[in-house]
Design a protein around this nucleic acid. Sequence first.
DNA 1: TGTTATGTTGCCAT
DNA 2: TATGGCAACATAAC
Length: 276
Amino acid sequence: MPELPEVETVRRGLLPEITGRTIQSVEPIDFPGVLGEYSVDEATARLAGRVITGLDRRGKYLVFALDDDAGLIVHLRMTGVLMLEARTSPAPRFHRLTIGLDGERDLRFADQRKFGRVIPASREALIGLDLKLGPEPLSDAFTADTLYASIHRRKAPIKSVLLDQGVVAGLGNIYVDEALFRAGIHPAALGASLGPEQAAGLHAAIQDVLRSGIEHRGTSFSSFRDAYGGKGANQHQLAVYGRGRSGLPCVRCGTPLMRIVLAGRGTSFCPTCQPM
DNA sequence: TGTTATGTTGCCAT
DNA sequence: TATGGCAACATAAC
């Protein structure tokens, strides 16, 4: 599922190709709701004629910067795929929206489960998005101290806390499980039970698993594809995600991994390496 | 063939 | 305010 490394992989693929392109059209295929509250006419009025001046990422959100200081926000949610494809190429499966560009290629948004959104955003809306999200985990704003400060009063399981995008932006089920394993922390341990040293270890583990994910161009465990339809390779680097269900042995100690449910998500961990 | 798991965000209840 | 549960949706796997 698209988390920070997957969204960053899409961003890096798209950036050099779409900067300077002009948006020509907004064309929903079979699901107008992909535009959120916007009608096709409203979205077209805001976007058509705008030049794309940059492409940023905030947490799991892709943010296209436009020449009028407004933007276009894309969230892939569970199964969204954003691709740059030749206008003449066959439409992708689950095609929901085309953003027509000048030149021969268009941006195409496909999404099996229709959770993803492509939404125009005013300058104010972009600021609002930034304010509601926690620090970028690979930026200087995210330190062991800031992590400790934001978790040490939380009474929820640390896994739930890390999935809170207001604590740190961009973690999802895969990278949280991997980071907790790497840090040797039980996913059900309460945030408030962790000391500064554990927070420091967790901080380093989060950065490690995210950097690895980006280096391997994302985790294509199921539907994730980059901007050109390619799969990532990070699924081969995962130590615990998805492996608790069948009790596969821990790569570190051999103990059968376990699966529990936390925050409504399947959670895999090693009961030996991640004691309560 | 029916049931269940999948996992993100927002909304609602506590 | 913090936390947990569930809906939105389509499909694969059991």
